[in-house]
Amino acid sequence: MDITIENPNYASFRYHNSTAYVNYHDLVVSEVPMKAQLIPARSKINLTTSADFMVGKLIEDPNFWSDFAYGTLNLTSTATLPGKVTMLKIIKFKGTVNNGCDISVNISSMAVESKCLSKIKL
């Protein structure tokens, strides 16, 4: 999968190796490795990674078959990216970005729609 990470701030952010989690009704159904990267100030990067879904856990959930029949699976993802913020190439301090996404998968068209919210803690 391709993940686009946008940094709208005037400082760059370098995060450490991390793991994002995909949940279905509060049940973790996938872990997504995120390799360390630098996100320059006011720019976007594309991160290519893979997500191995635990299909057994997914179909054992009592909500799965009714959601499947309805035609939409709603998932959430969370990621915590600890790292370092750099301003003007000389001012450096620790920061953590917390990201949460609501993901909707349309079964028949295989279209995916997501809405994400990120917060940085310095």
Score class of each variant (00 low, 15 high):
Asn46Tyr: 09
Gly100Thr: 07
Ser114Tyr: 13
Val105Asn: 08
Pro33Val: 04
Ile103Ser: 02
Glu6Thr: 11
Lys44Ala: 08
Ile107His: 13
Glu113Asp: 13
Ser114Met: 05
Gly83Val: 07
Gly95Met: 03
Glu113Tyr: 12
Ser50Arg: 14
Ser18Pro: 05
Ala11Met: 07
Ser66Val: 12
Gly56Ser: 15
Ala69Lys: 15
Pro33Tyr: 12
Leu117Glu: 14
Val22Asn: 03
Ile3Trp: 05
Ser109Asn: 12
Thr80Arg: 13
Gly95Tyr: 05
Ala79Gln: 01
His25Pro: 01
Ser108His: 08
Leu117Asp: 12
Asp52Phe: 03
Ser109Cys: 09
Ser18Gln: 01
Phe64Trp: 08
Val32Leu: 09
Ser104Phe: 04
Pro82Val: 06
Lys57Pro: 02
Asn98Thr: 08
Lys35Cys: 02
Ala51Ser: 15
Cys101Ser: 14
Leu122Gln: 06
Ile103Trp: 10
Ser43Trp: 10
Val29Tyr: 03
Lys115Ser: 05
Arg42Gln: 12
His25Lys: 15
Asn46Cys: 07
Leu122Asp: 05
Leu38Ser: 09
Pro8Asp: 03
His16Arg: 14
Asn106Pro: 05
Asp52Gln: 09
Asn106Glu: 13
Leu81Pro: 00
Gly71Asn: 05
Pro62Trp: 11
Val97Phe: 00
Val85Cys: 07
Thr4Ile: 13
Val22Arg: 01
Lys44Val: 10
Val55Gln: 04
Cys101Lys: 09
Leu88Asp: 06
Cys101Glu: 13
Asn9Thr: 03
Thr48Asp: 06
Ser77Phe: 07
Tyr21Val: 00
Met34Phe: 14
Asn23Val: 01
Lys89Ala: 05
Pro33Met: 10
Glu31Thr: 11
Lys121Cys: 01
Pro8Phe: 07
Tyr21Trp: 09
Ile103Val: 15
Val105Asp: 10
Val29Asn: 05
Leu38Thr: 11
Ile107Val: 15
Ala51Tyr: 06
Ile39Ser: 03
His16Met: 09
Gly71Leu: 02
Lys121Gly: 01
His25Gly: 02
Thr72Pro: 05
Trp65Tyr: 15
Thr78Val: 10
Val28Trp: 12
Phe68Ser: 10
Glu60Trp: 11
Cys101Leu: 06
Lys115Ala: 10
Ile107Trp: 14
Ser114Phe: 11
Ala69Leu: 15
Asp67Glu: 15
Pro33Asn: 07
Ala11Asp: 03
Pro82His: 08
Leu81Ser: 00
Leu122Arg: 06
Ser43Leu: 06
Ile5Gly: 01
Asn106Lys: 15
